[in-house]
């Protein structure tokens, strides 16, 4: 369908964007538009005003310091794909990005857009939660930081107020030697995942895991962190029996939805399978070398 009638504004600063949001009830931020425009085309939303942050260059760029990696809200998937230093600094982010949408969408879609859109099957929100990222939010009263676990409230719902905008996020520093994997299953490559699992953990010389983090997407109303599974793995040596029992626990810990594409039972089984795959991939990671997945130019 064609989009509903709307006004369009392209502010020159974050402050101006917030003023525009305050001035029109129901106004929406647009960046890459790769999630928002389909919503408008289906007329699931008809905002009277689109505030295009596409010229706000201070929302671009990434910076890795000892305090972590800060990504501007406007960082695009194709930029993560090409940034070898970023991929080394945040290997789980890199592994996840390889699953996001298709070539053309990756050229416009943004990290901030995916987070603010908050599709429970989207990859970026899952990785934000699994990495305990901090969201940076700007509003009329100034800036505030929100823990990623508190950011997502439900399908397509976040704690962002009508007059607030996400300006970026910070992923915690990635300790050397950490193991990671991101596994998802989609009906066609680049489609939304039916479910996905992210794991990362440290591993001592004897093979005992520590600081285990497990996240799941497409498995609830928001991206989930599977704390029971983390607790099950913490301090133990990885092995077939443990992976298998933890996979059962992972399936029991999620609350997937029934929809056109898959029923809840199927998604629950997928979470178990994907968790097993993720643990095996993470454990065998060393063979792939330190740099993680391949970088496209």
């Amino acid at each position: 369908m064609k989009l509903s009638r709307l006004e369009y504004a392209r502010p020159a600063s974050v402050a101006e964007a917030i003023e525009l949001l305050q001035g029109t009830e129901g106004a929406k931020i647009i960046a890459g538009g790769q999630s928002l425009i389909p919503v408008l085309a289906f007329r699931l939303a008809a905002p009277p005003l689109l505030v295009d942050i596409g010229k706000l260059d201070d929302l671009r760029g990434t910076e890795t310091t000892p305090a972590g990696t800060r990504l501007g809200a406007r960082v695009r998937w194709c930029e993560i794909e090409r940034d070898a230093a970023l991929r080394r600094a945040q290997p789980l982010l890199a592994a996840m990005t390889d699953h996001v949408a298709h070539y053309q969408v990756r050229n416009r879609g943004t990290v901030g857009g995916s987070l603010a859109h908050a599709d429970p099957a989207a990859e970026m929100p899952g990785v934000a939660v699994a990495c305990e990222a901090i969201m940076h939010v700007a509003g009329p009263a100034g800036s505030r930081d929100v823990r990623s676990e508190d950011f997502f409230e439900g399908p397509l719902q976040t704690v962002l107020a009508e007059d607030e905008l996400l300006v970026g996020l910070t992923l915690p520093p990635w300790p050397p030697g950490r193991r990671w994997a991101f596994e998802e299953f989609a009906l066609r490559r680049g489609d939304f995942a039916l479910a996905g699992v992210a794991v990362h953990y440290g591993r001592d010389a004897e093979g005992r895991m520590h600081d285990v983090r497990v996240g799941a997407i497409g498995a609830g109303e928001t991206p989930l962190r599977l704390r029971a599974v983390e607790a099950e793995l913490e301090g133990r040596k990885i092995g077939e029996t443990l992976i298998s029992s933890a996979a059962k626990l992972a399936a029991a810990s999620v609350d997937p939805m029934n929809d056109l594409h898959a029923d809840a039972e199927y998604r629950r089984a997928l979470v178990a399978t994907l968790f097993e795959r993720a643990m095996l991939r993470a454990e065998h990671r060393q063979e792939e070398g330190e740099n993680g997945p391949a970088v496209h130019p």
């Binding site: 369908m1 369009y8 647009i30 538009g33 790769q34 425009i37 389909p38 085309a41 289906f42 689109l50 295009d52 194709c78 298709h102 070539y103 053309q104 969408v105 050229n107 416009r108």
Partner: peptide, 23 residues
């Protein structure tokens, strides 16, 4: 018209994009 089929792909500033997903 909602970013799935790729038929409307054009090149904007050197990059392939879906022209139905851009104003």
């Amino acid at each position: 018209e909602h970013g799935v089929c790729g038929a409307c792909t054009v090149i904007v500033d050197g990059e392939a994009v879906r022209s139905c997903l851009m104003l």
